[in-house]
Design a protein around this nucleic acid. Structure first.
Length: 138
DNA sequence: TTTCTAACA
DNA sequence: TGTTAGAA
């Protein structure tokens, strides 16, 4: 039998209400309200405002926040995420580079991390020697 | 009760 | 990012 690929096209658009408020979005994503407001400041989210001044998020923002978290966890800063987001393809939670140039850019981010790891490893080695009371050979 | 902005013992 | 004060 052919591979079973279940494509849940949850086209669940907004419920009739005015939108998701920050408290609920925070609960549903596990991200603090503080962080959600920060993402907005960085241009990563742009909820509309209710006459009360309260932020009204769209249902899709739940997934948007998850994407942001994945990217942050990958070491990208908010500025980088802002420019990279439009090239990201989200297949039900699976994020993949949508543009070829993005893949290259991310590979360089990885190299940058490798360098950092190398420097930390060297620093740790120096610390080990210091702890062991190793004496220089001169 | 919830959210908002602004600011930091 | 957390936390918090003061207001709506």
């Amino acid at each position: 039998m052919p591979a079973k690929l279940n494509l849940h096209v949850h086209v669940k658009v907004n419920s009739g209400s005015g939108g998701v408020r920050i408290g609920e979005l925070a609960r549903r994503t596990g991200v603090s309200e503080r962080a959600l407001r920060y993402y907005e400041e960085q241009g990563l989210l742009s909820p509309r405002r209710l006459p009360s001044g309260y932020r009204a998020y769209r249902e899709g923002d739940v997934a948007a926040v998850r994407r942001i978290r994945v990217l942050l966890a990958a070491g990208l800063n908010t500025a980088r995420i802002l420019e990279v987001l439009p090239c990201i393809v989200d297949d039900d939670g699976l994020l993949t580079p949508g543009c070829p140039e993005l893949t290259e850019g991310l590979a360089r981010e990885r190299d940058r991390i490798d360098e950092a790891i190398g420097e930390l490893a060297a620093t740790r080695a120096n610390l080990d020697r210091l702890i062991a009371g190793e004496r220089r050979a001169d």
